[in-house]
Design a binder for these strands. Structure first.
Lengths: 96, 96
DNA sequence: ATAAACAAGTTTATAATATAAACTACAATA
DNA sequence: TATTGTAGTTTATATTATAAACTTGTTTAT
């Protein structure tokens, strides 16, 4: 009745990040930070966790001279996100 | 774009409890425990938090000789739940 | 009658998580 | 060349979730 919710996705910031990445092909650190209004530290940590889980890839490069970190969702990440959404629906609709 | 998710509801067990209470008028501790397959300790703690937030009421009585704890959702709880669901939708659909 | 097992919780301790604060490294600007 | 800004990372702290141990009382078996 209440499937376990993927703890990696059941976090406000990580969910927001994944949610953005689902629809965007790729996004850099700065963009993610603006969209989520997270602090840099928090975003950095959460990106690491998503990376460690294999839900995203992270590429470090430069845009001009400035460092640039680009994130992309992986197939596993996509799948986990979809599954999370499905699971969540069971929670939200349990009342009916 | 990403509204703050009510931290009281953004918890697996508390969300499950609220989700049950939304559809059921009242439910006792034992019932909630079975439905959520939570441990007693965890359930006890989370019920306390929902109570402290004013999202549920808790009545202690007896069923025969056995103690019985009955939970009910409040109007504030209902409202918070609905709001949480709405907020969550913004996360889940951000990709589209 | 009393010991053993069960029911319904609560309290306390520990592990996991999220978040913020402080720091690093470099770039652009005054 | 000193100051401010950008793009992050690392470390420390606060919060949260969870499990383990405990309490109180009940039923069942001896």
């Amino acid at each position: 009745m209440f499937p376990k919710l993927d703890p990696l996705l059941h976090s406000e910031l990580r969910l927001a990040v994944m949610s953005i990445l689902v629809g965007v092909d790729e996004a850099d650190f700065t963009y993610l930070k603006k969209q989520t209004s997270a602090t840099s530290g928090n975003l950095s940590v959460q990106i690491d966790k998503l990376l460690a889980a294999g839900y995203i890839t992270v590429e470090k490069g430069f845009k001009g001279k400035m460092p640039r970190t680009t994130c992309k969702i992986t197939a596993a990440g996509q799948e986990a996100f979809n599954k999370y959404v499905e699971s969540l629906k069971e929670y939200l609709s349990a009342g009916k």
